[in-house]
Design a protein around this nucleic acid. Structure first.
Length: 569
RNA sequence: GGGGUCGUAGUUCAGAUUGGUUAGAACGCUGGCCUGUCAAGCCAGAGGUCGCCGGUUCGAUCCCGGUCGACCCCGCCA
């Protein structure tokens, strides 16, 4: 078979007889001389055909044909080297050629950058993946997995698989459901995450566990969400927050070093949830930019603007001067997505803006110095309750920063001290903000809104990469948290009985984290969609365009499962 | 569940504010010429249910209603 790959040959191989196999990337026919670019995963090598017989044979070939070429490596004449190819210093003068597999004309041209639409790319994913840029991402994915596996294995972590077919719980995301053949009317559920299993492994004395875990969630999709995605899932016993954060900082540093050759600074910045919200208006702030939100409640209340006078909180963000059109767009955005109104003041030669007339010269001066404004600036205000005013300005901030050049390329940080519960006006009860296994930082639960947890979220460039916590290892406390979260005793016993029982047999203190591998890879490869780094992704509606899933199944099988279809949507 | 963008040769797009008998370009494909190309070049050619269904109309790719699909966002994602 082949003696070399298509990315391997160099000037030093001149004179060698070689055999290459690969796909025809392009044929350039000059009549009495023909050039073929032969492609495989490793690169492209130019093959030269100079004899009539071979040229005749090659006329049958087309793009994407798989061929074998035997020939002699020759250094290219000077001036005919191709500097954009690693193999551009040489070419292979063919002496024999063999067709291994023909190809129909592909539905799109397999070349970077791709022009075909997503729909077509996904239908013919195996062709899309042939492109060098896609191959590069597959390689990166493999390198990322290897780096993490080596890093964690060297630190005594055991790689252990946990079940995908598991129990349906009503907590959290909607489950994908798998009917049981042996027990008609009963169902498995595909695991949303290995959370409970990894805690059970700690109770089992595994001490340190990790896994590249597929997680299944039947929720609506986004650019950074897929119905099945992969998490770097890990858990360790006898640890506190710092142990896990230090471990992850080392791991992420190794990833950046191995994959991008970039050294990143550790330890990462730490922000409490409260500070992240106050400063950036987000619990996953993009801190690559020095644009901050300020509290101007005390000053703005002194204005004559009724909305401000009556508001609980008034938050502001100072940005380079915006045009009226920009501001109108931002206002519309804020109203549409957050149902919040924003006001503005523009500090230029004169003060302008829709609330300018409510600010006396003294008051605007006070504001100007409070916000350290120099030069021309626009200040956007949002008045309202604490969370909404901040989230609105946070979203506005992100929108303004789109397309701006960040001062650093990658900004990793931790967000800590999340509240464990949030009041749900609809159900009139306390809802767990994240998951119910996080260790609270207090044992006083009189006001659940004040309870924060030993939780730490890892954020990269405004994307939530992962979330982890120290877990509850005490049954009584665990039951207490479930109770505050409004879970009935009956449901608790049905869905978590086995787990609560496990907590009574010597559960060690433990904690861990789960990091979204696809999201990490998306950012490392500079992509904006998770679909780009998943080999075979689903569409936003969860369909597989290539294999055509989901699909109907035969009546026979439905019968076996004891299922009848009553409604088709 | 809701909002937005898009859907026209194999592919990516243009086109009709004026509804009309000939729907264009580029790339790809086919054939021809060509010994130094590498996004090869030059010449010629084939290629269309204008996403689908219905309505208005003498006539719809164009107008109207619905529907399907892809993408982006809100809700949702413990």
């Amino acid at each position: 078979m082949r003696t070399h790959t298509c990315g391997e040959l160099r000037e030093k191989n001149s004179g060698e007889n070689v055999t290459l196999q690969g796909w025809i990337d392009a044929i350039r026919d000059h009549g009495k001389m023909v050039f073929i670019s032969l492609r495989d995963r490793y690169g492209v090598t130019q093959v030269v055909l100079a004899n009539t017989e071979l040229i005749e044979k090659a006329s049958e070939f087309g793009g994407e044909y798989v061929v074998q070429v035997e020939g002699m490596v020759r250094e290219r004449p000077s001036g005919m080297r191709n500097l954009s190819l690693d193999t551009g210093g040489i070419e292979v003068v063919a002496s024999q050629m063999k067709l291994l597999s023909p190809s129909d004309v592909p539905p799109f041209v397999i070349k970077d950058p791709i022009t075909a639409k997503d729909e077509l790319r996904m239908k013919y994913r195996y062709l899309d993946l042939r492109r060098p840029s896609m191959q590069k991402k597959l390689l990166m994915r493999s390198q990322l997995i290897n780096t993490v596996r080596t890093y964690l294995s060297e630190r005594n972590f055991l790689e252990i698989e946990t079940p995908y077919l598991t129990l349906t719980t009503t907590e959290g995301a909607r489950n994908f459901v798998v009917p049981s053949r042996n027990f008609n009317g009963k169902f498995y559920s595909l695991a949303q995450s290995p959370q409970i299993y990894k805690q059970l492994l700690m109770i089992a004395g595994v001490d340190r566990y990790f896994q590249f875990a597929r997680c299944f969630r039947d929720e609506d999709q986004r650019a950074d969400r897929q119905p099945e995605h992969t998490q770097i899932d890990l858990e360790a016993s006898f640890v506190d927050e710092d142990d896990i954060m230090n471990l992850v900082e080392g791991m992420i540093s190794a990833v950046f070093e191995n994959i991008l050759g970039i050294k990143i600074r550790a330890p990462f910045e730490r922000l409490t949830y409260r500070n992240a919200m106050e400063k950036y208006g987000s619990d996953k702030p993009d801190a690559r930019f020095d644009v901050y939100i300020s509290d101007v409640t005390d000053i703005a209340k002194k204005s004559e603007f009724r909305i401000f006078k009556e508001a609980k909180f008034i938050k502001a963000i100072t940005v380079p001067p915006l045009t009226r059109k920009n501001i109108d767009e931002l206002s519309e955005f804020a109203l549409k997505y957050y149902n919040s109104k924003i006001s503005y003041l523009s500090f230029r030669e004169t003060l302008s803006g829709n609330v300018a007339k409510f600010f006396s010269p003294e008051l605007s001066g006070e504001l100007k110095s409070a916000l350290s404004i120099s030069g021309e600036k626009t200040v956007l205000f949002c008045a309202g309750d604490w969370k909404r005013s901040l989230e609105t300005l946070g979203a506005v901030r992100n929108k303004i920063l789109v397309g701006e050049t960040p001062k650093e390329q990658y900004k990793l940080l931790w967000v800590t001290d999340f509240p464990l519960f949030e009041w749900d006006g609809e159900t009139g009860g306390w809802m767990p903000c994240h998951h119910i296994f996080t260790m609270p930082k207090t044992d006083d639960f009189v006001d659940p809104s004040k309870v924060t947890g030993k939780q730490y979220d890892l954020v990269l460039n405004g994307t939530e990469l992962g979330s982890g916590s120290i877990r509850i290892h005490d049954r009584v406390l665990q039951e207490k948290m479930m109770e505050i979260g409004g879970m009935s005793k009956e449901k608790r016993d049905r869905e978590f009985g086995f787990f609560l029982s496990a907590l009574t047999y010597g559960a060690p203190p433990h904690g861990g984290i789960a990091i979204g591998l696809d999201r990490l890879l998306m950012i490392l490869s500079g992509e904006n969609s998770i679909q780009e780094v998943i080999p075979f992704p689903k569409t936003l509606t969860g369909t597989g365009l290539m294999e055509n899933v989901p699909s109907e199944i035969e009546d026979e099988k439905l019968k076996e499962l004891g299922i009848s279809i009553t409604q088709n949507r």
